[in-house]
């Protein structure tokens, strides 16, 4: 494995567990205001600055719900902006209950962020109603974005088989109709978390079809080590 600074290390086996990063919001002004009112996944660092402020959280998954509840402890009001029609489609039931019961958290469904404006710092967000297309402008100094996620796997291009969205394929997802992946040279099929390269395994969110839960990721990490042992025994 080679690194950005030119150095390298060798190893018998590799476990890919590089996870995902938040997807960036697309729209005029949004990129310019990152770190100046628009934040990705940094609710903890910025929370103290949001005291008595109007805060928007974008996204409908658990991470967005957790951030909304955390920020609501200090903020004047937190608005959760969700594209889907129901929070329960994307968020765990226990979080939906807390979000809906919180007096300072409100939820806007079927709504998306289209643009942001502000001189030194975020001042306004434009929100669009997904059904009617109507756009409203709201005053807002703080927007925390937790929309979807993308795996960071470009560096594996041409080496490890990935699905259309870049997630790493492993185990049964590699073998169509029981046939091993192209270029596979061993007379066994890939182990459960093994990628298209023997000895290279994938665990957690970076793996295609993963469960996106902390407990599953922890379990897959442990299981991958067990499979590494099995692989090493055959070397």
């Amino acid at each position: 494995m080679r690194f950005g600074d030119g150095s390298s290390i060798d190893a018998h086996a590799v476990i890919l567990a590089s996870g995902v990063t938040y997807r960036l919001l697309d729209g005029p002004g949004l990129a310019d205001l990152v770190g100046r009112g628009v934040y990705y996944g940094s609710a903890l660092t910025e929370a103290a600055a949001c005291e008595d402020q109007e805060v928007y959280v974008v996204g409908g998954a658990n991470s967005a719900g957790q951030a909304a509840l955390y920020l609501a402890r200090l903020a004047k009001q937190v608005t959760l902006v969700v594209r889907g029609d129901e929070l329960s489609r994307s968020m765990s039931a226990y979080l939906v209950e807390q979000v809906e019961a919180h007096p300072r958290v409100r939820v806007l469904t079927r709504t998306e962020v289209v643009s942001a404006t502000g001189d030194d710092h975020l001042e306004h967000l434009e929100l669009r109603d997904v059904d009617t297309g109507a756009v409203t402008c709201v005053e807002c100094g703080w927007a925390f974005v937790f929309i979807g996620a993308a795996p960071h796997t470009d560096w594996l291009d041409g080496l490890v088989a990935r699905d259309a969205r870049g997630y790493v394929l492993a185990g049964p997802d590699l073998t169509q109709d029981g046939a091993p992946p192209t270029g596979w040279t061993l007379d066994r099929v890939p182990y459960h978390l093994e990628t298209s390269v023997p000895g290279v395994f994938a665990a957690g969110d970076v793996r295609s079809e993963s469960a996106k839960r902390v407990a599953s990721a922890v379990g897959e990490g442990a299981m991958a080590v067990m499979l590494v042992h099995r692989y090493l025994e055959q070397l």
């Binding site: 494995m1 086996a13 590799v14 476990i15 567990a17 590089s18 996870g19 990721a217 590494v228």
Partner: peptide, 9 residues
């Protein structure tokens, strides 16, 4: 063994 990524997995 090289593990790439320091999240839960």
């Amino acid at each position: 063994l090289v593990v790439v990524g320091g999240g839960p997995a």
